[in-house]
């Protein structure tokens, strides 16, 4: 994680679990003592967005930047000028959570000239259980459309193959096979394999990439107290 570049752009199809990954990644940076910021650039998804975690982020001293319009639940595509601060201020370790399709990724395209290749990693989070990215060709098509929308190149893959509360180790292995196919075709590394903490003990030895244990923060109302 320390080897990742200062700005981590997290992309993927909605349902890939990119927000869950982004939220966990952000907490991890902060826990390790970095001056951390999270930018919620998701302007296409109206529910289950990282900005919902604002109180928890703030408690950890994490800077949260989302819409410039106050309130959690609007669907106004209004980006905050503060985003420039964390892109330019090199003292921030920054995570950017990008909307889950080509249109969502367009918001990132706006920062094309602000992003220095040497300074960012752009992850594509892949879930082999999502029907629209379930095979190599459709996953690559989706990845390309996000690159097109955002005008940036993906630099690494993240395997986050899950079925919400019903995820089994077999799902993770299935996702790994898909990710490795995509990685080979595109010449990209498989950087992380995301695993819910409760499943870590059951993992086999042949996991590719760094294992990234996560807690579940994006809960449905009946999963809360």
């Amino acid at each position: 994680m320390k080897k990742d570049k200062r700005i981590r752009i997290i992309t993927g199809h909605y349902g890939s679990g990119k927000t869950e990954f982004a939220v966990n990644y952000t907490f991890k940076l902060a826990r390790e003592g970095y001056k951390t910021a999270i930018v919620d650039l998701d302007i296409v998804n109206p529910y289950f967005r990282s900005r919902q975690m604002e109180p928890e982020f703030q408690e950890m001293g994490i800077k949260v930047i989302s819409s410039s319009v106050k309130g959690l639940s609007g669907d106004l595509p209004a980006l905050s000028p503060e985003i420039n601060t964390v892109l330019e201020d090199k003292s921030f370790e920054t995570v950017i959570d990008v909307g889950g399709d080509k249109v969502g990724a367009t918001a990132l395209g706006r920062y094309h000239d602000k992003l220095d290749k040497e300074e960012y990693d752009m992850f594509f989070v892949l879930n082999a259980n999502r029907p629209l990215t379930a095979d190599k060709d459709s996953a690559i098509r989706y990845l390309r459309s996000i690159e097109q929308g955002s005008r940036q190149k993906i630099t690494a893959l993240v395997n986050n193959t899950h079925l919400c509360g019903e995820t089994r180790v077999e799902d993770i292995i299935k996702g790994q096979e898909l990710c490795l196919q995509v990685a080979e075709e595109l010449g990209l590394p498989l950087k992380y394999t995301v695993v819910y903490k409760g499943l870590i003990d059951q993992l086999p030895d042949n996991i590719s990439g760094e294992i990234f244990p996560i807690d579940i923060f994006m809960k449905k109302p009946w999963e809360m107290e």
Binding site: Y14, G15, N127, N129, R130, P131, L132, A134, H162, L163, C164, E166
Partner: peptide, 13 residues
């Protein structure tokens, strides 16, 4: 096998 669907997409399919 089970797949992960967003409600709106699943309704359409």
């Amino acid at each position: 096998a089970k797949e992960l669907w967003k409600g709106n997409e699943a309704i359409a399919e």
